[in-house]
Nucleic acid binder design. Structure first.
Length: 393
DNA sequence: TAGGCCATCTGGTCCT
DNA sequence: AGGACCAGATGGCCTA
């Protein structure tokens, strides 16, 4: 066992506690690691790769990094749990060539143990009886079921997220990664609005929303806002990767943009952006900023607001959770509404489904009403009151 | 047909 | 020991 004081200072991020806790020992192993790290530091060609790991110099990073690399290097100590998938497979299949594998691993990793091979530690391998094999299979199938459930929960949460970002369609779902990116941009945009207290122009709004999104998603968002994506994409490219409220020179203040849907009872079909196929959306921008216009809530086209959360009281809320009258709906000034379906669809097809696994037979954590008390409403209430006042002016 | 996206299985790791 | 979480592998589906 190496004392903490034996650890050379060049070993980044390793604390004395770590050394003791991890029971690393032979000095030869330590020397080998130091040599390897020294090579890493000296080899300029390796530096970029090394630096790619975020926080790799941190203590936490060193703790995490032990998982893969150190496991491998500790194999002379004979930790059976670290043998990897071939081990698990052989356990299940009951193969008896384990000893050969262990010897091979020890030879691979223990090239400099100077003959005094450390004894194997950890639990001794027990023979795989048919009962144990069966139990292992049962355990595995249960784990698979749990994993499926977990992923379904995650997908339900993503579905809920899709409904509150400013571009929602039942027929053309955003991918998971694009949903997350758009949500990030949307949050950032709202934050900027709160900070600046200014209404951005529509192009800036879309530009900000589309930062880092793929071309199809950008087109989709542009379609939601019913502007030509080329208008802002050209500038977006010039801006580079910097994420900011866009160039005022491109600003279209006073841009006489108005969502047709808001000016007519029904959002017209085919008003979508360049690459949209049979989807009609309505502008979140309008909904946020146009203020006075209200959709026809009795229209067959209105399928409720797959909308960004309403922040009147500092809480995000899905209003579909309880039935509300159309008049009550109108009280939300900047709720947003997206058709998500072609305007020619029948009303039957427009039944609002906020189920998304949560309410509709979902049996998981998504049953929790979304958005409530996500933020501490008390401490943030003044902010939202300001916002509220801002949008009412 | 290549590439993107997704669901599922699986083993590893950490935690209780 | 078992559950949660994670990431890699794999195969299916869809679209350009």
């Amino acid at each position: 066992m190496a004392a903490a004081s034996d650890v050379p200072a060049i070993w980044p991020g390793i604390r004395a506690d770590d050394v003791n806790k991890r029971a690393i020992a032979p000095h030869s192993v330590l020397r080998r690691r130091v040599a390897m790290l020294t090579r890493l530091f000296n080899d300029q060609t390796l530096l970029p790769d090394v630096q790619k790991f975020p926080g790799w110099m941190d203590d936490s990073a060193s703790d995490d990094s032990k998982t893969k690399d150190d496991e491998h290097e500790q194999c002379p100590l004979g930790d059976e749990d670290m043998k990897g998938s071939s081990r698990a497979l052989s356990e299940i299949t009951g193969d008896d060539d384990d000893d050969e594998e262990e010897e091979m691993d020890e030879e691979d990793c223990g090239d400099d143990v100077d003959g005094d091979k450390p004894k194997r530690r950890g639990p001794k391998k027990r023979k795989m009886t048919p009962e144990r094999i069966e139990r292992s299979k049962v355990r595995r199938s249960k784990a698979n079921a749990r994993e499926r459930t977990r992923m379904h929960d995650l997908n339900s949460a993503l579905d809920n997220l899709r409904k509150v970002v400013p571009c929602y369609s039942k027929t053309q779902k955003l991918s998971k990664i694009e949903t997350l990116r758009l949500a990030r941009n949307y949050i950032w945009t709202l934050g900027e609005i709160l900070r600046n207290g200014k209404r951005p122009d529509v192009v800036s709004y879309v530009q900000t929303l589309c930062k880092g999104l793929s071309q199809p998603t950008t087109n989709l968002v542009a379609g939601c806002l019913q502007i030509n994506s080329r208008n802002f994409l050209t500038e977006q490219c010039q801006e580079g990767a910097r994420f900011h409220v866009p160039n005022p020179a491109f600003s279209l203040h006073g841009f006489p943009y108005q969502c047709p849907r808001l000016s007519s009872p029904q959002c017209p079909t085919g008003s979508s952006g360049p690459t949209l196929r049979n989807h009609s959306y309505c502008s979140s921008y309008d909904a946020m900023y146009a203020g006075g216009a209200s959709p026809d809530y009795n229209s067959p086209d209105y399928e409720g607001h797959h909308s960004p959360p309403v922040c009147v009281n500092g809480n995000f809320s899905h209003r579909q959770q309880e039935p509300v009258s159309p008049n009550a709906e109108r009280g939300y000034h900047y709720s947003m509404h997206y058709s998500g379906l072609s305007g020619s669809r029948s009303s039957a097809a427009h039944g609002l489904s906020y189920s998304s696994g949560a309410r509709g037979g979902g049996s998981h954590s998504e049953n929790v009403p979304p958005f409530h008390d996500v933020h501490g409403s008390n401490e943030r209430a003044p902010v939202y009151e300001e916002l509220n006042a801002f949008f009412h002016t």
